[in-house]
Amino acid sequence: MDETYQIYVNRVASLTLPTTYQNQLNNIQNSPKFQQKQPVPFPGYTVLTPPYQDDLVNETFYHQLTLIQQQLIQKIEPNFLIPVPPESFHLTLADLIWEDNYRNAVQTDQDFNQKLKQAISDSFQAYEKLDLEKGQCQWQILGLLVFPRALVVGLVPCNELSYNKIFQLRRSIYQNQELIKLGIEQQYHFTAHITLGYFGEIPDDLDKSSLESIILSFNDQWIEKKPQVLMLEQGELRKFENMMRFLSDQSNPRVRI
């Protein structure tokens, strides 16, 4: 289901075009994952890079992202964006299971969590056995992307090797028959991103033209500066309770990318 390297880069680049922003801003919605700017219960599991608070490799990258988030909040409508706490900034490598599907799974099978951990561990081992080219996995900021319920930073691979590593990791996960038996399957094309905030109150008179200009101005800043690069060295399974808390557990499987 995931695309080739060049198709991925072209698709994500198209998401930063003014015409795309215009269409997307016409269809934004407030996020149901929050009520009165507070996260609601939204349990599940995902495979991600270590969040900012646990990432010792990308300190400079996430510091810059924190500054960008602060600048955005200052420029846009009050209460429009519910900011993600910077300490939880991360890159999702593979969506697994969440909300009602997760609740139903653990009610049906009391061993579901352990089975999920074992299956992901097997996927990680399968990935590590692949004869992949050696080298760092580096992704860089392309620009802001407007998702239906969130404002995010979009990332593209610095080279084909970096893309292939994530492509193969996702393939090892989604083609795992034990995961499929647990009801987990790929539902989305991969769009590498780090969420800055979710949409809260959307005013009826929201100045979409002004918001588009703000987004484009931030993108221009990235074009003019040295690319901000995220080093992907590790992926791990984490449980989340809501969109602000991704729980660390030493028993969770990890993989070197």
Rank of each mutant, 00 (worst) to 15 (best):
R170A: 05
Y163K: 03
F167E: 07
G200F: 08
E128G: 01
E77Q: 13
K117E: 15
I97G: 01
G135V: 09
L145W: 12
E178M: 08
I120Y: 13
L179N: 01
Y127L: 00
D131M: 04
T92P: 06
K75H: 14
L116W: 12
C137Y: 01
G197N: 05
Q175G: 02
R170I: 12
Q177M: 13
N176M: 02
F190A: 03
I82G: 00
I120K: 07
F124Q: 09
L151N: 04
Y127P: 01
N104P: 01
L130Q: 15
L145S: 12
D122K: 13
Q118H: 12
D111T: 13
E160G: 03
I166V: 13
D111S: 11
L132M: 09
E133L: 14
N164D: 13
K129L: 10
Q187G: 03
A94H: 09
F199C: 04
E128T: 00
K129T: 12
L81E: 07
R171S: 07
V153Q: 02
Y198E: 07
T108R: 15
E178A: 05
F80N: 01
I194P: 00
E128V: 02
N113D: 15
F112T: 06
G154C: 14
I173E: 12
R103T: 04
I180T: 05
D95P: 01
L132H: 05
Q70E: 15
D122L: 09
L161G: 01
S123E: 09
I120R: 07
C158V: 10
Q69L: 08
N176Y: 09
V156Y: 05
Q168S: 08
R170C: 05
I180G: 03
L72I: 15
A105R: 08
D131T: 05
E160L: 02
P157T: 09
L81Q: 02
A105D: 10
C158A: 08
Q74G: 00
A192P: 06
R171H: 15
V146T: 07
Q118I: 12
F199S: 00
I120C: 05
L179E: 02
W139V: 06
I141C: 03
T92L: 15
D109M: 04
A119K: 04
Q114E: 15
Q140Y: 08
H90K: 02
T92H: 14
E87H: 13
P83K: 08
L132A: 02
T191I: 14
L182I: 04
Y174H: 14
I173K: 05
W98V: 06
E178T: 14
L144Y: 01
D95K: 02
Q187A: 07
L81V: 06
L179K: 04
D100N: 06
Q138F: 12
Q136V: 05
L81K: 03
